[in-house]
Amino acid sequence: MRVAIAEDSVLLREGLARLLTDAGFEVVARCGDAEALLRAVAALAPEVAVVDIRMPPTHTDEGLRAAVEIRAAFPRTGVLVLSQHVEPALAMTLFADSASGAGYLLKDRIAEVTDFTDALRRVAAGGTAVDPVIVSSLVARPRPDDPLGRLTPREREVLELMASGHSNQGIADRLVLTLRAVEKYVSSIFGKLGLPATGGESRRVLAVLLFLRR
């Protein structure tokens, strides 16, 4: 699987490349800023790009803007944005129209190699990855008549994994459940939250995120 990396810290960029190479990815571009990344994506059409949100020149949101641009111009390249901060609103900016082929993870997550490469593969395949810390901050939001209170603890677990972008099979693997059991939980959750049953797992992620953000 071909990956482009955009990260201004050389230390992290090389570490990331090493980690991904070790995990069986082919790192086709190592960029220090957003412009280089955009050129690399245009030239090499990688399946996925890993982008640091703060890069030169202003160190504010170059990475996020490049990610939005890549998603619009090169829909076949997935984008995984890395950030030092928990900003649900920024994740939602990335998912504005669709959560397909997009991810937003805390930078810390790269050290958890399996989770990280899992997420990267999901995004490359057109799926979604949302950092669990962001999901739990959304879930923890106080709500007027707390609809989440009607969920069982297990259903809450399933909801958080759904919101993080895991497929039913992924949820089943993590919670050591059968696929059938996960499907039952999912339809029960949708029923309790009053969400319409949507097709496609990435549309499901967006629906859940939008619900949690309310």
Partner: peptide, 14 residues
């Protein structure tokens, strides 16, 4: 510090 710690964490994983 944050960047270095992430790098350290990465190295520990490797």
């Amino acid at each position: 510090a944050q960047q270095r710690l992430v790098g350290l964490s990465l190295r520990l994983s490797l």
